[in-house]
Design a protein around this nucleic acid. Sequence first.
DNA 1: CAAATAAAAGTGAACGTTCATTCTTTTTTA
DNA 2: TAAAAAAGAATGAACGTTCACTTTTATTTG
Lengths: 192, 192
Amino acid sequence: MAQLQKSIAKRNALIRATIALVNNNGFHATPMSKIAKMANVSPATIYLYFENKQDLVNKTYIEVKANYTEYAFAEYNEHMSVEEGFENIWKRIADFKLKESENAMFLSQCDNSPIIDEPSLQEGIKHLQPLLDLWERGKKEGIIKPISDYLLYAYAINPLSFLMIAQKRGIIKFNSDQIEEAYQAAWSSIRN
Amino acid sequence: MAQLQKSIAKRNALIRATIALVNNNGFHATPMSKIAKMANVSPATIYLYFENKQDLVNKTYIEVKANYTEYAFAEYNEHMSVEEGFENIWKRIADFKLKESENAMFLSQCDNSPIIDEPSLQEGIKHLQPLLDLWERGKKEGIIKPISDYLLYAYAINPLSFLMIAQKRGIIKFNSDQIEEAYQAAWSSIRN
DNA sequence: CAAATAAAAGTGAACGTTCATTCTTTTTTA
DNA sequence: TAAAAAAGAATGAACGTTCACTTTTATTTG
C-alpha cells in the first residue's frame, strides 16, 4: 500500500511561487494557474496540498510570519540587558526586512489589506511574545518609556517596513551607516 | 448643442464607493457591478466617468492623497518655527488618519500593494514638498537630525498608519493622552 | 416662449474571457 | 498491483467591458 508521499519540495515551491506572484500582482490578480506554472505543477495538484486559494495564502502568511519572528529572535536570550536585547532584535529584524525583502514585502502587503482572514492574522501575532516581554522588563527598569506596546512597536519596528518598500522601489539604498541611523532613531523614540 | 453635464455628485459617489469596497474587500475582489450598485448607478455609467477599472482606482488614489496633504498643511505656514511647524503638521496628520480613517486605510492599502500604477504613485508624492522644506530648514538650524527625508518620514509620520490600523481593528483606542505620547515618540526620534 | 431637435447622460442585458475548482485519466510508488 | 499522487481537460460562475437603446438636457427654431 502506498503511503502519503506528497513532496515537501512541491509544497515549498507552491509557497514561494505564491509569495513572488502576490508581491508582483496582488492576491486576486494571481491566478492558481500561474502559481501552478511557476511551481512546475498542475493546477489540480495545488488542491492536494491546500484546501483552496484562501487556505494557500493563509498558510503562506503564517509560514512567512513564523520565519520572520524566528529570525528576529534567533540570537536573543533573556539574560541580555534591555538595551542589548533590543539592539540585537532590532538589527535582526532590519536584516530580515532588507535581505529577505520578498518575504517582508509579502507580510507588509498582507498586514495592510484584507487578503488574510482574521484567524490567520491572529495566529501570526502570537510569536512576538519575547519582544513584549523585553519591553515589559524595560519599563519595569525605567529604561523604556511607559507607553503601550503598540506605540512602541509603531515607532521602533514598523518604520522598517516603510524603509524596506522605499529600498525595493529604488528610492534609497541602505548601507550600514544608514541602518545605524535608523536604529538610533528607533531607540530615541522609545527610551526613557 | 448640449454641454458636458456629468454630475459631480455621481463621480463623488463612485469614488466613495470605491474606497469603501476596496477597504473591505481589496481591489480585485471589488467588482465594478458592486461599485455601481453602491453608487446607485448602472455599471455602464462608470465608463462615462472613468476609462476603466484601473483608471477609477488610480484617480481615487490621487484624489484621496491630495485631500490628505491639503488637510495636513492646512494650518501650517512658513513663518512658524521648525518645532511649531512640525508639531502642527504632525497633529493634523494624526487627525486625518484617525478621523478620516476610511480614506487613510485606502491610502495605506494602495501604498503597500501593487494596485496603483507607478505614474499615479509618483503623482501622489508631489504634494509633500512643504514637509520636506520644513525638514531642510530644521536640519540647517541644527534642530533636526541630519538624516535622509525617508528616514525622517519613516519614524515621524509613517508609524501613524500602523496605529490607525490597530485602532480600526479595535486593538487600541486613541485618546488625547496617547496622541501626545505618540507625538513625543515621533519628535524624539527626529530631533537633534 | 413652446415645440422640435440634437447630443450627451444614463441604462440593462449580453458578450467574451478568465478564473477557481472538479472530474477523469494517467503516472508513480511502495 | 493497488492506492496515492499528479496531470490536463472540463465546467460553471463571475467579471470587465461593450452594445443597443432610452431618458434627460440644452439649444435652436418658428
